[in-house]
Amino acid sequence: MAVLGLAGMDTERDFRVFGERGAPRVAARRVYVRHDAEVALVGATLGEPGVIVIAGTGSVAGARNRRGDYARCGGWGYLLGDEGSAYWIAREALRAVLWAFDGRGPPTELTGAVLGALGLSSPEDLVPKVYAEGVGVRELARLAPLVTEAARRGDAVARRIVEEAAYHLALHVVTLVRRLGMEEPVKVALVGGVFRAGEVVTEPLRRHLEKHFKVELVEPKFPPAVGALLLSYMLSGVPLTRSLLENIERTAREKGLTP
């Protein structure tokens, strides 16, 4: 058996095409293909009911309820979605800098921080930088820590951006909890570079979530690679006993696979 957690498996067509063209090339009797958020969730919660929010360059959330039903929300890419991601935060920062330059928005310390990081002398230089030079998604996403740091120092514009990011990420969770009829308290695992900023992001996220239900923010227990292994046991009907999990944890620690 092989369990594959793949990014970009977003539609029924994606799964169908991979099943027809990719799965036959995998050296296994059975091949289970899952969205990468699902295997990440299983690793994070040891297969228990919960939600995982992944906010790195992009954003997506996945959830499993007590019946084993799985659903995902978001993950539609930087043009159509990825709200609350590092890319989204950075893009909003660039907009705020230009609004401040226009006079449409308030002054912000993000102006100096963004221009310095990109080696520019004026907000006007953002236009050729973005449109002519074609700043990549990952390059732009690397500006997100400038926003969370400015928010931590009290910059009002940066705080608004971070607050909106937390709202959008919380909306992913609320949507999934309602769709799956999940029981409280809801375990929510946070993964990705956006959450490395700490409480400046996690506290507004918690506040938005607690308007709807009791929540427990948790550190992921295992990375996605181990999640795929655990999911293979679950799909095979093998119970995740304490002794099995302890053995896996010991092996994962030895191999450097623990978070």
Rank of each mutant, 00 (worst) to 15 (best):
V3E: 01
A7S: 15
M9A: 13
M9W: 07
T11K: 13
D14P: 06
F15C: 08
F18I: 10
E20I: 14
R21L: 15
G22S: 12
R25I: 06
R25W: 09
V26W: 13
A27P: 12
A27C: 10
R29H: 10
R30H: 13
R30F: 06
V31N: 09
Y32P: 00
H35R: 09
A37C: 08
A40K: 09
A44R: 10
G47H: 10
I52Y: 03
V53Q: 02
I54C: 00
S59P: 04
S59K: 03
G68E: 08
D69I: 03
Y70D: 00
R72G: 14
G75N: 07
Y78E: 06
Y78K: 07
G81W: 11
G84E: 01
W88F: 07
W88L: 03
I89M: 14
I89F: 05
R91F: 09
A96G: 01
L98G: 04
A100C: 09
A100G: 07
F101W: 07
D102H: 02
G103F: 02
G103K: 03
R104N: 04
T108K: 02
G112D: 01
G119C: 09
S121K: 14
S122M: 02
E124T: 05
L126R: 03
K129D: 03
V130K: 01
Y131Q: 01
A132I: 03
A132K: 11
G134S: 10
V137L: 10
E139C: 01
E139W: 01
L140M: 13
L143A: 03
L146P: 04
V147E: 11
T148S: 15
T148K: 13
E149M: 12
R152F: 00
R153P: 01
D155C: 02
A156E: 14
V157K: 02
R160I: 00
A166W: 04
A166C: 06
Y167I: 00
A170T: 05
V173E: 09
V173G: 07
E184I: 07
K187D: 13
V188I: 13
V188T: 10
V188G: 08
V191I: 12
V191F: 09
V191D: 07
G192I: 12
V194G: 02
F195S: 05
E199W: 10
L205I: 02
H208L: 01
F213M: 04
K214P: 01
V215P: 10
E219G: 00
E219K: 14
P224D: 02
L231G: 01
V238L: 14
L240F: 08
R242T: 14
L244R: 15
R250A: 13
R250E: 08
R253T: 05
R253Q: 05
E254W: 03
K255S: 06
P259A: 07
